[in-house]
Design a protein around this nucleic acid. Sequence first.
DNA 1: CTGTGTGCAAACTCTTTGCATAAGT
DNA 2: ACTTATGCAAAGAGTTTGCACACAG
Lengths: 143, 143
Amino acid sequence: MTRHHDAAPLLPTNVSTRLRAAGLRPTRQRVSLATLLFGQGDRHVSAEALHEEAAKAGVRVSLATIYNTLHQFQQSGLLRELAIDGQRSYFDTNTSNHNHFYIEHQGKLIDIPGDAVRVDGLPEAPEGMRISHIDVVVRLVKA
Amino acid sequence: MTRHHDAAPLLPTNVSTRLRAAGLRPTRQRVSLATLLFGQGDRHVSAEALHEEAAKAGVRVSLATIYNTLHQFQQSGLLRELAIDGQRSYFDTNTSNHNHFYIEHQGKLIDIPGDAVRVDGLPEAPEGMRISHIDVVVRLVKA
DNA sequence: CTGTGTGCAAACTCTTTGCATAAGT
DNA sequence: ACTTATGCAAAGAGTTTGCACACAG
């Protein structure tokens, strides 16, 4: 084992272990998708994009399974779901605290490191509620 | 004329004038919808909700027209579109600078006054881009 | 073996579109 | 009259669902 950054998501074995740790059976599909998702740094994917990527990688997975898997990963804390454009859902492999630039005319997302941005002056959460998460989306257009 | 707050959106005449100012013909449907939308303070509506509300108010408007109208109002700066939950679109009658609490399990939005929140530490927009708008959504769950 | 996961196709929700009719100016 | 808006129904995108078959443990 050499150095590692945040996680060590390269070998299928690690992927299997990680899935099992999340309470998910490491099936062929889940392992393949997890490898695609977590094997190349932080990324933002839509269901359709992941489906195509899997197809290109020679992995046969139905779209229904893609959706199931994305949601299971999300519920297990492996992915975070982003509501950006009201039509399509995006899933972010970076589940740590960070925010996003969104380039409107390209539908492209860029991470903003979590410790860069500070949000001040929020009012109290209403009675009986607590803040689960704050999403900051910085929308960009051509200059 | 008595006191006024930000706009004076009550009488049909005002609505018509406002529509015309926005470059939109004050048709029966647009006037009715604008009256519903702007006649009762700041609100957040989905297309379907506005459609039902119009029906209850005895205004006959097709859903297609609701969508057309919402988008026209948005493009004219009368409404702001909010991407909150990735399925449905919400439109906000408050187009000034402010942010939102979102109560996840109720799908309910609450305004946070714009001057309350300050976002610090944003990186520069990438080359050739400029920030058009920053959305802050504070997601709430049961305490 | 037993239970969970997967694939497929159909169903569903939200939204958009095409085109004939209606309405605004 | 001329032009733009509206309604309707059909089409479209994205997502979910139901159920038979497949696979992991």
